[in-house]
Simulated scan of single mutants.
Amino acid sequence: MQTTVESRHYFVPEPSHWPIIGSLALFCMGLGAAFAINEMPVGSFVLAAGVALLVWMLFGWFGDVIREGLRGLYHAQEDMSFRWGMGWFIFSEVMFFGALFGALFYVRVISLPELGNMQHKLLYPEFVPSWPLVSGPGIQATYEAMQAWGLPAINTLILLTSGATVTWAHWGMLRGHRRVLSTGLLLTVILGVVFLTLQMWEYSHALHELNLTLASGAYGMTFYMLTGFHGLHVLLGTLILAVVWLRVRRGHFDERHHFAFEAAAWYWHFVDVVWLMLFVFVYWL
């Protein structure tokens, strides 16, 4: 449990070396990815080194923050800063996905009608402005669009259920029911893993049976861009919730001090809302 330390001032930690390690990790990952794409043998080693540095940085930096919290160094002012920081982070994620949805909107609502008008018919006489595009300029091979009422619908039900389980865990936290808290978090993590597994299965089906790739015109590009980035966020959220669950098992939180759990829950609800929008605008409509 948390200990108390008398403090009348805003806690400022000592200068840390972890940002430098993180910057070096991202540099190695970017450089290694560029080398690997160009089939340079050193690329995979540089990329692996960057990933290893990033994992080391995450464990080290987050570990420092956790230890500071357990020492009772964070009080009302620091708690408010954490909440503002998480709020702005989620806002930046909203803007990020807003840009991706904006690209989808531009292609479907603006570009398609423009390319299908009489002026452009002289350039593309066989072009049909319908969505999804299955043929036309820039499409290297025909493909089939992903249907909504299959794996995507199942994954939607899974994420909605996970939102209920994490809310149930929050209810247990506020009332001091440790078993409810632990069980709800564990169920949420399991549902996140199931979602990612089904998404990998969906991608395999799309690539090998529907011939849907990144080269499949605007539909393939927006499909993988939106669902892929969302899947990355589900992976991150699942890892965060798993760490919070391990901390719950070690008794790190109580009814009053549990912002790390709340931050993870906020992030997970954001991921749920984005998926609902994806299901409607990418799969359904």
Rank of each mutant, 00 (worst) to 15 (best):
V166P: 05
L115E: 00
H120V: 04
G172Y: 09
A164D: 08
I158K: 04
G176S: 07
S135Q: 11
G192H: 10
S111C: 00
G102N: 08
V128S: 07
M146C: 11
Y124H: 00
V189G: 15
I158E: 02
V180I: 08
Q140A: 12
T165H: 04
Y124S: 01
L115P: 01
H170G: 07
N155S: 09
Q140C: 06
A164N: 12
G150C: 09
L122P: 06
Y106P: 06
A148V: 02
L187D: 06
A148L: 03
L151D: 10
I154K: 03
G176T: 08
I158P: 10
T165C: 12
P113S: 05
I190S: 10
V166L: 11
L123C: 09
A164Q: 10
T142W: 15
R179Y: 02
G184H: 09
R108S: 08
A145N: 13
M118I: 00
L181M: 01
F105T: 04
P129T: 09
E144L: 11
G184N: 02
R178Q: 10
P152N: 10
N117P: 01
S135K: 12
S182M: 13
A164Y: 07
I139M: 12
T156I: 01
M146D: 15
G192F: 09
P132V: 02
L123S: 10
G176L: 06
H177D: 00
L185M: 01
L174E: 06
I154F: 03
K121R: 03
F127P: 04
E144F: 14
A169T: 13
Y106M: 14
A145Q: 10
S130G: 10
N155R: 14
A169F: 15
A141I: 12
V107N: 14
I110E: 08
S162R: 08
W168I: 02
T156N: 11
A169K: 13
L181D: 03
L181I: 00
L133W: 03
P125M: 01
L191C: 04
L112K: 14
A169S: 15
A103Y: 14
G138C: 10
G136Y: 06
W131D: 01
I139L: 15
V189K: 15
G192R: 12
W149P: 06
L112E: 12
Y143G: 01
I190P: 12
L115F: 00
F105P: 08
W149S: 07
A103N: 09
E126I: 05
T161G: 11
L187G: 05
T183F: 03
M173L: 04
M146W: 05
L133T: 02
R108M: 04
V128R: 04
V107T: 14
L157P: 12
L157S: 09
T188D: 10
E144A: 12
F195M: 13
L115Y: 01
T165G: 14
T183P: 04
L191V: 13
F105I: 02
G116N: 06
M118L: 00
I139N: 14
I154L: 00
P132F: 09
N117W: 02
G192D: 06
T183W: 05
S135P: 15
V189Y: 15
H177W: 02
P129I: 08
L181C: 03
A141Q: 14
P113M: 02
Y106V: 08
V180S: 03
V128E: 05
G150M: 04
R179W: 00
V134E: 12
F105Y: 11
H177N: 01
S130C: 13
L100E: 05
G138N: 12
L186C: 07
A103C: 12
E114H: 00
Y124E: 00
S162C: 08
R179M: 03
V180Y: 13
